[in-house]
């Protein structure tokens, strides 16, 4: 695909639309899913199955006034929600959904997505710092230490996958896994890696994705029973809406990355009919797991979270990295 200006604009618009649509309907799915788990109906009044709920919520949020608390740092306060949404949208541009559906494939796709992902914690820091609210401030400090702690094992695990694939190109990584389920990076039997520890890598990556996206049980940033609403305590209206959309967009990206790195992207488990539908299926199964986890577990503590990262995830992922390197050398 040749890069033209038109291409880029279309891609960005599509990415925004995809992110916004996903965010809106993931909220719906989350509310319905949570309700089912708790044996309630969930939103079911507006439209069939409550499907009109997200747009109506959006209208409600847009109609509200955006209040800026007195003494807040205005510029930072307004930038923060935009910063929450922007990196998420930019990441969508490089994610390949199938052989052909990709806005701009880059040979350093993995790097670019991680670069954007780490911008996310900036927005939390901005929001918490500028709100002039003690709860928000505490939450933003938590969020940053959490982001630092979890990006390390996440990156180490990604390096393992990159080593196996021998490329940072997302397309290439998927192509290498495309033959059958046994070639996926999560199942180590065939393909490039014979690494029996890969399922654990997958688990580590998944846990890190949960932590990176501030999802339960790692939602310390917005721990509602302690910090009221954390960094977005002072945000109303669309400021809050953007944070919300950013959060869900990040979940989608995290799941996309997991799909691409470990679950063979758009390839079929049996090598049949590869295509975007497989990608979508895997993506939403992962997201459903996110929702399922959120409504099952209590929240961890901040030191529990850091202990998990530094004492368990980082040593294990480092060991796995060395092990994989050894395997690649031997075979």
């Amino acid at each position: 695909m040749r890069l033209t200006l038109l291409n880029v604009i279309v891609a960005v618009v599509l990415a925004i639309a995809f992110a916004a649509l996903n965010a809106a309907y993931l909220v719906w799915a989350e509310r319905r899913g949570a309700a089912r788990i708790q044996r309630r109906p969930g939103p079911n009044i507006n439209g069939p199955f409550g499907l009109l709920q997200p747009p109506l919520d959006g209208i409600k949020l847009m109609a509200k006034q955006l209040t800026i608390p007195g003494g807040a740092d205005k510029i930072m306060f307004i930038t923060a929600p935009v910063l929450a949404m922007f990196p998420a949208i930019m990441s969508f541009v490089t994610i390949p959904f199938s052989d052909t559906i990709v806005a701009k494939n880059m040979s350093v796709g993995v790097l670019m997505i991680f670069a954007f992902a780490s911008m996310g914690s900036m927005s939390l820091l901005f929001a918490g710092w500028s709100s002039r609210n003690k709860y928000s401030m505490m939450s933003s400090v938590r969020a940053v230490s959490q982001a630092v702690a979890y990006e390390i094992p996440m990156l180490i695990t990604t390096i393992t996958v990159v080593m196996i694939a021998g490329s940072t190109d997302l397309m290439e990584i998927v192509h290498q896994q495309s033959r059958s389920i046994l070639h996926w990076n999560i199942f180590p039997l065939l393909g490039n890696s014979h690494n029996l520890l890969m399922p654990f890598s997958f688990l580590i990556f998944f846990i890190c994705t949960l932590a990176e996206t501030n999802r339960a049980p790692f939602d310390l940033g917005e721990a509602e029973s302690e910090l009221v609403a954390g960094f977005h305590t002072e945000y109303g209206s669309m400021g809050f809406g953007l944070f919300f959309m950013g959060e869900y967009a990040n979940i989608v990206i995290g799941s996309c990355m997991t799909t691409i790195l470990f679950l063979g992207g758009w390839s079929c488990p049996f090598g049949l009919f590869p295509g975007v539908w497989w990608f979508i299926l895997k993506l939403y199964l992962l997201i459903a797991t996110f929702i399922w986890i959120r409504w099952t577990f209590p929240r961890t503590t901040i030191y529990g979270l850091l202990n998990l990262s530094w004492k368990i995830l980082i040593p294990l992922s480092l060991f796995n990295l060395l092990f994989t390197a050894g395997l690649i050398k031997v075979f």
Binding site: A34, I37, Q38, R39, R40, A216, P217, D219, A223, E224, S225, W295, T296, F297, P298, R299
Partner: peptide, 16 residues
């Protein structure tokens, strides 16, 4: 109590 710790579903089961 479990809700204080961040888990919401047990509250619903308990209320049932």
């Amino acid at each position: 109590f479990v809700m204080d710790l961040g888990g919401f579903s047990p509250l619903m089961y308990a209320l049932q």
